[in-house]
Nucleic acid binder design. Structure first.
Lengths: 255, 255
DNA sequence: GAGTGGTCTAGACCACACA
DNA sequence: GTGTGGTCTAGACCACTCT
């Protein structure tokens, strides 16, 4: 219980917030352990003498913090005793990947089909012998002379048809695949590594031999959890850095 | 208008979703331009012949997609004609920064006060002559012998008292500052660059001279938008890469 | 004071999960 | 069948903004 001042005092804040705080406090005190079921909405109506709407609003806040999750016909389960995922990435989200691609021209210089050998299969999280389409190109800032990146894109063989639509628009390739092949992008995993540029790359990028470079590998997974595209971007360190922002997302009051 | 099939057919989905889709469609068609005010909730009740609760649920969904935002006493403004920020970063969010720090020991080797010269002021987005606390140290994977990073942390002078609490616990420094100084972390800006390690750093990190390194600079801003900490981490490329995941967050149906 | 979105109640019906 | 959360209605009062 620990009804926490329901009697009369509005105490300045909405009732559903008081209910949410009371429930959160009971979760944190261990009265509702992680993994257990919360009392039903009807129970909370009785416990706090509020309407079901108010209880639902309180629970919705807690769900927004990732602390509980509801399931029809079953109940509401406690998922965490602390708010999770308080921060979201705002810049350099996927829409900014989109932005990046719009401001940057990709010139494809080579396209071929490849059969994955051991190294490539490891990189693409696939099997040896699997067929992929490979695009190799250079990215230029609109109007710039030196490329800002050397790009290699691998597209799973079954989505190769999307590549015929590339020239027309300067959209990201994953967008084209989504549209043409009817697949939905669900997740992008990104890995950033520092490397020493090999001589050929350094020459193409127009930097001194032995210069450092930033390698960004992005893997695109569909809603069916299938890896359908892998992009490898090699940037000259002196002309590229990777910026992202994590912003406080929500506490109980502001969602 | 463009009421889109309200008459009788439930069409399998909740009414508020149909309303949300209808409004979204009218936003995208330009009937409700970005920057303009949406009709009032009462209007939508009449337009779609639904209760206010249903209208509010529809608008709440659109707000969740970042397309509209409501203001008491004023109205609901159209913010975008497409859902924004469909993806959130799940791994390498701030809780994972936390995780990272817990798995890694930070050995402080030097602590001093510094007065910002021109270069440092630029790095710290501060003014020349400003006073900062500087901590220099090395990060080790628990039990490892070679450091995984050389770290320099700058803390604004007014928060220096927090640094006296470092030895006890292996929490991130920003957490200590939050707790000791009563400030709230609001935003972290992160910049990743590839560099060539200078000889001293390469030697300390135990890698060959001239090896590439990954430099990660994180700036911590308070709720008052004050920069209170800057962390600079220099990693050997061969032992460190930066991984993050962006996951599809929400469409109209699933939030 | 008029109008807005924010909160709240009391009631209802539904699809779903589970025994 | 029973109970759960999900949806929906009709009404009410409030704090707030703008004029």
């Amino acid at each position: 219980m620990s009804a926490s001042s329901l009697p009369g005092l509005p105490s300045g804040q909405p009732r559903y917030l008081m209910v949410a705080q009371a429930i959160m406090s009971d979760i944190q005190s261990g009265q509702y352990p992680v993994g257990s079921m919360l009392p039903t909405e009807a129970d909370f109506c009785r416990i706090y003498s509020v309407s079901r709407h108010t209880v639902r609003e309180a629970i919705r806040r807690l769900a927004g913090l990732g602390m509980v999750s509801a399931q029809v016909g079953v109940g509401t389960m406690v998922k965490a005793h602390q708010p999770v995922s308080r921060y979201v990435q705002t810049a350099e989200g996927i829409s900014d990947l989109f932005q990046y691609v719009r401001e940057v021209d990709l010139r494809i210089v080579k396209r071929q089909e490849v059969i994955a050998d051991k190294d490539l299969a490891a990189l693409l999280s696939g099997k040896v012998g699997q067929k992929w389409h490979a695009l190799m190109g250079e990215r230029y800032v609109s109007g710039g002379s030196d490329p800002i990146a050397l790009t290699t894109v691998y597209v799973a063989a079954s989505y190769g048809q999307a590549l015929d639509h590339i020239p027309g628009d300067s959209q990201p390739i994953y967008t084209i695949i989504e549209r043409v092949c009817g697949v939905t992008l669900q997740e992008v995993r990104q890995e950033i590594t520092a490397v020493t540029l090999d001589d050929a790359s350094a020459k193409t990028l127009g930097v001194a031999l032995g210069s450092p470079g930033l390698q960004v590998v992005r893997k695109y997974y569909s809603a069916r959890n299938e890896l359908f595209e892998v992009g490898i971007n090699l940037h000259p360190a002196e002309r590229f850095s990777h910026v992202s922002t994590l912003r406080l997302n929500g506490n109980l009051e502001t969602q």
